[in-house]
């Protein structure tokens, strides 16, 4: 691989080997990004960068390229542009990568993307011309060699590219070997799907050690019982543990009348669960950082940064 160059704050922190926190922003089915920008502003002081999602679960939202650019500009936050191979062919994606650079983006998270069948436009054509590994390869070619299919790009884009991994995957070995392919294709960092099972996560992260790549553990602090239940039900491959669901339910019921106390209790419960979880993995030197997917829950970041900085 070519020598490590730094194109963004994220790239710089990863190169230094610092333990980092990234966030996630989920623009919705709207052309008005003011809510997401507000959320990004609240999150900005605590995170190195924030992911901007690309129609997750196949549900159509504002285009992630446009949203990434606007959020980065308006909220003064570095963005990790989530780019799926679901909707655009290789030719289109190569053009988007150049467009992304021109719009000031410097980090890409390469994703396959949820199948259109899962979302609100199930009749649309599933493209998948590339997959998440071959997208990493395309980005690396464009950035490191300055070419597309061997043809020179006059002024090539500059990007860091990461990919996803699922610590809950069964069989785990297939997932680990797949990450190996992504690393071979030029992926520079990994953000994982949400994990709740400490033992399984340790096993998974230990298996990834051989690839010598920073892994940011996906966590999902839950703002409310409804959020926890929804996540458990709708996100493939993730089961929120029963005791967490029970605890969140009891907070919901016990503090029905006092909403501000209820909020405080939810925040505290998240802290109490994630603090030992992250600390243990950090102690074992299995993590490059944490990727917090606390969508619409930016107030958790000040509390979370205590865990990261510990």
């Amino acid at each position: 691989m070519a020598e490590k160059k730094v194109y963004s704050k994220l790239g710089e922190m990863l190169a230094k080997g610092e333990f980092i926190l990234t966030g996630e922003l989920e623009p919705e089915k709207t052309c008005d990004l003011s809510h997401t920008i507000q959320e990004a502003k609240e999150m900005a002081p605590y995170v190195v960068a924030a992911n901007v999602t690309d129609s997750p679960l196949g549900i159509v939202t504002i285009n992630s390229l446009a949203a990434s650019h606007i959020i980065q500009k308006e909220a003064n936050i570095e963005v990790i542009w989530q780019l799926t191979v679901r909707d655009v062919n290789k030719l289109g994606i190569a053009g988007m990568i150049m467009g992304g650079h021109a719009l000031g983006l410097r980090n890409i998270l390469s994703l396959t993307g949820d199948h259109p069948n899962m979302g609100d436009m199930p009749e649309s054509k599933p493209v998948f011309d590339l997959d998440s590994a071959t997208l990493c390869m395309l980005v690396r070619e464009m950035v490191d060699k300055g070419t597309i299919n061997g043809y020179e790009i006059e002024s090539p884009p500059k990007f860091h590219v990461g990919a996803a991994a699922n610590p809950n995957s069964n069989p785990m070995e297939a997932e680990v070997l797949k990450i190996g392919r992504k690393v071979e294709a030029g992926c520079e960092f990994i953000q994982t799907q949400v994990a709740y099972d400490l033992e399984k996560t340790i096993e998974f992260l230990t298996a990834l050690k051989k690839y010598n790549i920073p892994v940011l553990l996906g966590i999902f602090p839950m703002k409310s019982y409804a959020m926890a239940k929804g996540f458990d039900t709708f996100v493939p491959g993730v089961d929120v543990p029963k005791d967490i669901l029970a605890k969140w339910k009891s907070i919901k019921n016990d503090y029905k009348t006092d909403k501000s106390k209820q909020k405080e209790m939810y925040d505290q419960a998240n802290y109490e669960f994630f603090n030992p979880f992250i600390t243990e993995l950090k102690k074992k030197e299995l993590l490059g950082g944490v990727h917090c997917m606390a969508v619409h829950y930016p107030r958790i970041f000040p509390k979370l940064i205590e865990v990261i900085k510990d």
């Binding site: 998948f128 590994a133 071959t134 493939p236």
Partner: peptide, 21 residues
């Protein structure tokens, strides 16, 4: 493969079964 991937599996498989369907 529902997505026709060359480098699978994707994140849509759970315990060996596909999210599509």
């Amino acid at each position: 493969c529902a997505k026709g991937l060359h480098n699978g599996p994707c994140g849509g498989q759970v315990d060996g079964f596909c999210e599509v369907g």
